[in-house]
Design a protein around this nucleic acid. Structure first.
Lengths: 152, 152
DNA sequence: TTTGCAAATGTAATGTTGTAACGTGCGACG
DNA sequence: CGTCGCACGTTACAACATTACATTTGCAAA
């Protein structure tokens, strides 16, 4: 496994990285996708498709249907630009598009914020356990609900 | 940590064990709860609250509203008689009520069945990682989506 | 017995999340 | 110029979940 850095992108740099990653995946970087990504990236907490739809609608001065948002979020998830937080029915931008390890979300039940940690050893162990049970094409979903340091 | 057996209960024995566990938790074992538990236990796959509502309605010959089901499912989850599968918006009966370790669900994307494995080492590692990040009162959600042995 | 309380369940309405089906605009390419 | 494919729009609906309040039940104190 090659070593690689995780310099997190922020703001415009993040959007640029996302754009590069999408194009690299053979997809287009349209205005709509750009808007949705940047809105998603501004959220502190995991954002629902409807939250995003509202924000993007405001930004564009024209109603954008949840439907359209879902389509693009799905694309983002499959191309690893964003991730779905299953236990919150919500999405977060991937702060380092291009790197694609499994990640572990810590979601605060009090304030709703989600931090994410990478721990390949842990997630690989989960993968291994699932494969040992006969599963293939495994996609781990590792999330932890709890109370964050700020909300103690 | 004391050693303990995991003889899985089935059918009536499971319902009996569930009843004992609920009463032990200071709650009542009512007809409604009994019906909901037994219906839940008959499902092979994770069942949604609405699935259960339908089945119980049939069984009773009278409509049982989803919210009644949710109430009781919540109770079951907090008393460890059932678990919620977050990535499927559905519930499964705990096949050994009374034992309360974290468990890992393997959900087949093809056939929808969920098997569950216990691996305290793994889940404790996840707990530890979360606590190391400043989280308290952690509740791990470890699920793996994939393709089961039967669906290969 | 009756009264009163608390827990469990019923009922209705509504909110939130997610999909399906089909139509439209637009650029690429022969 | 067609026509093909892709992105996006529009509408409708399905699935999941919660809220507020009413009614019933069981139990115990007066």
């Amino acid at each position: 496994m090659a070593a690689h850095h995780h310099h997190k992108h922020g703001g415009t740099a993040l959007a640029d990285a996302a754009q590069a990653a999408l194009i690299d995946a053979g997809e287009q970087w349209t205005d709509m996708r750009s808007d949705i990504f940047s809105v998603l990236a501004t959220f502190e907490k995991p954002a629902s498709a409807y939250d995003i739809a509202d924000m993007v609608s405001q930004k564009r001065g024209k109603r954008v249907a949840p439907n359209s948002v879902y389509r693009i979020l799905d694309l983002f998830v499959t191309t690893n630009l964003a991730r779905r937080v299953e236990s919150a029915n919500a999405y977060v931008a991937n702060s380092h598009p291009g790197c694609l390890h499994d990640c572990i979300f810590l979601i605060c039940d009090t304030c709703g914020t989600a931090t994410h940690i990478d721990n390949d050893i842990l997630s690989n162990n989960v993968r291994a356990a699932a494969e040992h049970a006969g599963f293939a094409e495994v996609r781990p979903v590792i999330e932890v609900r709890g109370k964050c340091a700020d909300c103690d």
